[in-house]
Nucleic acid binder design. Structure first.
Length: 282
DNA sequence: CGATTCCCCTGATAGC
DNA sequence: TGCTATCAGGGGAATC
């Protein structure tokens, strides 16, 4: 599932491809993905708009559209991919009721089968939102309004920014005085933006901290280790272009790469946590 | 207010 | 074989 590194990779890839292009038409088959505005309005406001910039905040993709014809302010198209949403760039043609890619795609790339929203671009190519489970979220609105949505405004700091130093990290966690399990805290977007189920497991494995350890009980060495692990894991994942590193996630029953103990899986508020019972202590 | 549960979705898998 | 039940999971809403 796309977390910070995957979203960052998507944004980096799209940047040199779609910025400067115009949206000449839009197509949808699952309008409920668009939370705001109505499909009719959405189409009216995106058709003809020029893509000015694309960025990321937390796990959200922000596509800035220009103020065309001076009849509206510049807008932002916010896309949250949730579990299975994918933003693809390429060319597809409608064949037997399904969008089929013209370009070569890896056989395992199933995303092409679940295209639900398409932007036709001025260079003849397309920007597609694919989503197997249809849980993705798309919102369009004036830039200021979008940036003031809870989705963006309530987000915690960006963990890869230079200003997110160890002091700030420790302060953030201490301020929270969190009774919650550290894994929950790491995944809380209001504490730190962009970390989800995969990377929280990986970070805790690297830091050798048990996912159930209450956040407020972390000692200063643990906090420093956790900070270092968080930076290392995310930076490495971004460098690897989001091919999520999996040293514990979904490796239940397999052996820990550090000590050979069997990886365990436990439930934590409807989500699963994977960890090494020997390396990671409470 | 905090903690828990449900809901949105559908492919994969387990159970009968 | 073929059906049905369960699960996964980000995040927001409803409920306790």
């Amino acid at each position: 599932m796309p977390e910070l590194p995957e979203v960052q990779t998507t944004v980096s890839n799209l940047k040199n491809k779609i910025v400067g292009l115009r949206i000449v038409d839009v197509w949808v088959d699952t309008p409920q993905l668009i939370k705001k505005p109505s499909w009719v309005e959405f189409k009216k406001q995106t058709k003809g708009a020029k893509i000015e910039k694309i960025s990321r905040r937390g796990k959200n993709i922000l596509i800035y559209l220009d103020s065309r014809f001076k009849i509206q302010d510049s807008r932002i198209l916010l896309i949250h991919q949730k579990l299975t949403g994918r933003l693809l760039y390429g060319t597809w043609i409608m064949k037997h009721g399904a969008w089929t890619p013209i370009q070569k795609v890896p056989v395992e790339e199933k995303a092409n089968q679940y295209i639900h929203l398409l932007f036709f671009l001025s260079n003849g190519k397309m920007l597609a939102l694919s989503d197997l489970r249809k849980l993705a979220k798309v919102i369009l609105g004036p830039a200021e309004e979008i940036l003031n949505l809870k989705d963006i405004k309530k987000l915690g700091p960006e963990p890869l920014e230079k200003s997110f130093n160890v002091e700030k990290f420790i302060k953030t966690l201490r301020q929270a005085q969190d009774k919650r399990k550290i894994k929950e805290v790491l995944m809380d977007q209001e504490i730190i933006a962009g970390i989800g189920n995969v990377y929280s497991d990986e970070i805790l494995w690297q830091a050798k901290i048990h996912p159930f350890k209450p956040a407020r009980r972390l000692g200063s060495k643990e906090l420093k280790d956790l900070y270092q692990a968080l930076k290392d894991v995310l930076e490495k994942a971004v460098k690897l272009r989001g091919t999520d590193i999996r040293r514990v996630y979904q490796r239940e029953g397999e052996l820990c790469f550090r000590c050979g103990t069997k990886i365990k899986r436990i439930k934590i508020g409807g989500r699963s946590a994977h960890f090494c019972p020997k390396c990671q202590r409470i």
